[in-house]
Design a protein around this nucleic acid. Structure first.
Lengths: 364, 364
DNA sequence: AAAATTTAGCAACAGCGTTGCGTAATAGGG
DNA sequence: CCCTATTACGCAACGCTGTTGCTAAATTTT
């Protein structure tokens, strides 16, 4: 963890991000709202608002007359002032979304990918999809970049795909670099689960505490939001949650160990025992809660969302029964709020975050 | 996660902390060292060094003449310019240490605690121990406070002991408040494992990446250092690592679930099967690595340190075999570098951190 | 119509790191 | 011996941040 020096431009970006976060959470806001939410002085908020207005990111929508006193000026985010494109690269499909500054998905499309697709085939599919998407809207000067969420292992800091599980042509591919060259856009690469939890954090705003996204979709993964930021681990490899042992004498997993959550879950699913499959996931979630003490658990992934209520009920019950026996220990369990768009939308939000989110003082 | 506003005083503390971190890691340093380590401009470093010198936290120790050019001024931390006291409150013992600004343990003492001790008995023991410790040295104006590391559950933000495991008189005790009043010192309260990992992070300096401390000592707990800071979770309850299920059909644990790491480990220990006990811990550690992708795992705790090499070998082997098959996935496994003082020393370092460490922008 | 209340914003300020540039101290070459 | 290149230190001016002090504007209440 090498830290970065902080100068006054950091303050600028940081406090501006606080104000924008208020704008994303509350549809309309005024100066007093921001003062309460951030602790900045009214005068400082005025300055930030002036800057944001000049950049076109927010605009005034009139005044509010609550009673006595001078009316307050009401502001709102200008959603279509900035956009980012998000891509979810799965094993057989490419999902592309267009997300605006408010975090709304404005466009979504899925296209098939050739089995065992090559980097060049992915680039071509990205190019075609992005062209289609941007032809309907004029995004000139308002497109901040492309975020790609895909299966690992990969290195988000260097934009390097080390070797995506189950894809032959993806060993040490510098995807960010070649995509930036091919598409002429800034590109950010991250694991699918990390993109997913970022989307949830964006939508919930500043009140979103430590949380995890459990994704069941050709494997079981976890994305983590800890201390107000995505947790990626020392080598961008956090989230291999499916390969944690829950049954010492269980069946052998593809990873070589015995009784991994993923293989136990898979056996239950193949046996048609959905209840057991859900309970196994619930055990894993409670393990996470005991270890990390999370405020929020989000359930996602195509396979999970085929039986959402079964999983939701099993996890909620296990959380209540096994981990949260004290009144002060509360954990919300919810289904992913963005459905199938979660990963792609989160990848797009990561790009917006690089420009308009909380600046990071500790890269990695 | 409510964030705090940032003003210029944040910059001051932040960059000053970067310089002090260099001073703690390298015994001697000069301006160029800090420039390289922090990315600050030479002029900015000069200003920070001038402030720190004026406060007596660092001092010049001469010059270095490497060859051509004007000699560089060499600085060093003044270890005895600031102190903090650390307390490790266990079930039967109280350990007190005196730690200086450099992170060195200058004094260490253990005293017994009455079985099922009350808050008042702890306060009296703290008072007596601190009086003995401070009588030999004049710490006037240089003592920054007292850090207490103890078993949970507790609330570090409010300094509240919610109900320490196995202690009857400790339900909703506002320990920080009453200790501050009784001792006349600023007090910081935290879980033992969190204090422990803080000590390791302090000693390793800026290169310490995401890491965990595994503590085996009347139960199995984990302390986490993620993203450059201690991870405590949503309710200061992170670290109940011993109560993660590793054996779905295993024996029933005191927590109500079946096959917790702790109960499986305990059964192996009671059966005299030390090798199996160590292997069980190793399975848990690999689970953590898969989930969080850690750069460093530290082993600690009285029970573990009775057979340090057995545990170290088992964990190291499992990490190599099960999780780190790629050249880029590297995790160091080490024994706690501070031995029995780890928790108390870490608690003291947390106090020093509040004054001279990286300021937090996100409380909780 | 005057007073009270609430909000907005101008102007001066303190403090941070940065930039530009001058100065001090050393080694090596003519 | 002197000059030059090299290396390091630091003063002074600067741009930028949020803060403080105060004035002005717009509304309701008396």
């Amino acid at each position: 963890m090498t830290r970065v020096t902080a100068d006054v431009t950091f303050l600028r970006g940081y406090n501006q991000a606080l104000v924008l976060a208020v704008g994303r959470t509350a549809r309309r806001f005024e100066r007093a709202t921001v003062v309460r939410a951030t602790g900045l002085t009214p005068q400082a908020v005025s300055k930030v608002i002036a800057r944001l207005s000049a950049d076109g990111l927010i605009r005034s929508t009139g005044v509010r007359r609550p009673g006595v006193g001078k009316p307050a000026i009401v502001y709102e985010l200008v959603p279509d002032s900035r956009y980012a494109i998000g891509a979810h690269v799965a094993r057989r499909t490419l999902r592309l979304v267009l997300v605006d500054l408010a975090g709304t998905v404005r466009y979504s499309a899925v296209s098939p990918l050739p089995s065992d697709f090559t980097p060049q085939q992915l680039l071509d599919a990205l190019r075609a999809g992005i062209d289609t998407m941007t032809s309907s809207t004029d995004l000139r000067g308002r497109l901040t970049g492309l975020g790609i969420g895909m299966i690992g292992p990969l290195d988000h800091a260097h934009g390097l795909v080390r070797g995506a599980h189950g894809l032959r042509h993806w060993h040490d591919v510098p995807l960010r670099e070649i995509a930036e060259k091919h598409l002429g856009l800034p590109v950010h690469l991250d694991k699918d689960v990390t993109a997913g939890i970022t989307a949830e954090a964006w939508r919930h705003g500043a009140t979103f505490g430590d949380a995890a996204l459990i994704m069941i979709e050709s494997g079981i993964g976890g994305g983590f939001w800890l201390g107000g930021a995505a947790h990626r681990g020392a080598h961008t490899n956090a989230g291999e949650f499916g390969h944690t042992v829950v049954d010492l004498d269980g069946p052998r997993c593809v990873c070589g160990r015995h009784g991994c959550l993923e293989i136990v879950h898979q056996h239950a699913t193949e046996a048609g025992d959905l209840a057991r499959a859900a309970r196994v996931v619930a055990v894993g979630v409670v393990n996470l809660l005991q270890t990390l003490d999370l405020a929020h658990v989000v359930l996602a992934g195509a396979d999970l969302l085929r039986h959402p209520q079964t999983y939701l009920a099993a996890v909620t019950e296990a959380v209540q029964a096994d981990a949260r026996r004290a009144h002060w220990l509360t954990t919300r369990v919810t289904l992913s709020s963005l459905g199938a768009d979660a990963i792609a939308a989160g990848a797009a939000m990561q790009v917006l975050d690089r420009h308009y989110g909380i600046p990071e003082l500790a890269p990695n």
